[in-house]
Design a protein around this nucleic acid. Sequence first.
RNA 1: GGCGGCUUAGCCAAGUGGUAAGGCGGAGGUCUGCAAAACCUCUAUUCUCCGGUUCGAAUCCGGAAGCCGCCUCCA
Length: 468
Amino acid sequence: MGIQFYNTYNRRKEEFKPIKEGYVGLYTCGPTVYDYAHIGNFRAYIFEDLLRRYLLYRGFEVTQVMNLTDIDDKTIKGCNTKGISLAEYTKVFKDAFFEDLDTLKIARATHYPEATTHIKEMVDLVKRLLDKGVAYRMGDSIYYRITEFPNYGKLSGMKLEDLKTGARIDAEEYEKETAADFALWKGWDEDDGDVYWETELGKGRPGWHIECSAMSMKYLGETFDIHCGGVDNMFPHHENEIAQSEAATGKRFVNYWLHNAHLMVEGKKMAKSFNNFYTLKDLIDQGLHPMAVRYVLIATHYRQQLNFTFDGVNAALASLQRLWDFYTNVEESSGGDSGGQIGSITHEAEEKFTSALDDDLNISPALAAVFDMVKAANRVMAEVGLSEDDKKILLKALDGFDSVLAFVKPPEEAKIIDEEVERLIQARVDARRNKNFEEADRIRDQLLTQGIILEDTKSGTKWKRKVE
RNA sequence: GGCGGCUUAGCCAAGUGGUAAGGCGGAGGUCUGCAAAACCUCUAUUCUCCGGUUCGAAUCCGGAAGCCGCCUCCA
C-alpha cells in the first residue's frame, strides 16, 4: 500500500494519488506578516516541512508554494499606526520569518509569493467571477455570492443555516446580500490611508481569501494535489478558496486537504492574556535548543492537539542527545564486524519508518523505528563492533532519516573546538597516563564549566559540546 | 446555541476487537581510576468513569465527567 492521508474534504484516510505520477503540487498557507510568528504557527510550518521532506524521501518531485500575506486589515493597521509604508512595515516580519525557518531547519519552499506582488492575478480572478455572475458589486466592494455554490460548507461540515448564530456582525455585513458572503475586493476607505491599488475593479485592495486561490493556481495549476493549513483555516478561509476557485474554473480545486491541530502551552490555550504566548525568538532567548523545539513540534501527530511544555523540550533534548551520540559513535567506531546483523537491523528500521509515515505521517512509530535501530546497533557495537561496511550502511540509513526529520545528525557547531580547549584535553590525557587523577578530574571539571564534556573510551578521550 | 476533537505509566506518546510500541525520567547491575557514553534487568494485570455487545474491548455501542477547537480574516 502506498501513502495515505487523512483528507479533511472527505473526512477519512485516502490513498494518495498524485495528478501527475511522481510529482506533487503542494500549497501551504503561510504567515500574515503583521507580527513575529509564534510557536503555534511553527507547528503548522513544521508539519508541512515534514510532509514535504517525506514526499521527497519517497521519491516524489515536489513544488511547494507558501504565500506571504502582506496585505490585510492587520498589516494596514500596523503600517498606518507607525506611519511607515506597508512594504517597510512587513519587511521586518518577512525577514524574521525566514530567519526563524532557518533556526528550525524548515526547508525552503519552492515559491513564497506575496499578495502585494500578485494583485493582477487576483483582479483577473475576480473578473472571472464577476463574468460568471457569482460575484456582485456593492458600493466600491465586490462580494462572492455563496448561495451560488452548491457545495459550500462541504470541507468544514458547516451548514449555511448554522452560520448565522455566533457570527460577529460587522457594519459592512449590512451591505451584503447574505451575511456569509465574503469580500473578494474591498473598496478603499479612509482608514486604509495610502494602501490601495488602482485597478480595473476600482481603487482598493483584495480580500483575504482570493490571494490563495490566485497564487496557488498561478504556480500549481487550476487543480493541484495537496493544500495544508491549520484547522482554524478550514472555515471560512479554505471553504471560500474552494468556492471561488471552483466557481471560476469549473474544476476541482484541490484533491487532498490536510489540516493540523493547534497547540496548547503548559496545558492552556496559548494567549497573550495567559502570559504563555511565545514567539520562536522568545524560546531561543530563554536558552531552549532550536532542535529540541523542532523535535517537540514534530513528535506529536499533526492532527493531534499538542501540549507544548518546557519539560517536554528538556526531554526532547535528552532524546536528541542520544541520537547525536549514536551518530558520532558510529562514525568513530572501528575494528569489528557485525556479520550482516547491521544490514538487517537498518533494513527493518527503514521498513517500519516508511510504513509508519506512509500512514498519514504517523510520526510516533516512525521515531520508535529510529530508536529501535539505535538500541539494536548500540548493542552490536558494544558486543562485536562495526566493520567499514556496517558503518556505511548505518550512516546511510541515518542520513535518510535525517533528510526527513532534520535532527538525527549532530549540529555542525558541535565540531568546532578552540586550541586552548585542545591543549587542556591533551594535558588531561598526560595526567591520566601518569595516574595523576586529581589533576585529570580538575581539568575535566574545568572543561565542563566551559560546556565541554569528556568521555574516556577504548579508542581514547573524546569530547562533545554540552547542549542545554 | 450549532458542529467537531481529545482523555493510555511520574511526564510525552503509539496502539482502533486477540491480551499495552517508543522516548524522557526513576531504581539496580556491567564497563570505567572515578565519570561519561553504551549495554543488561526492572519501572501500566491496565487504558477518565458507568453500563452494554462479544468467547474476548484501550479498541465497537450507549451514557456521564473533564479538557480543547471551529462557528467571517487566528496555524
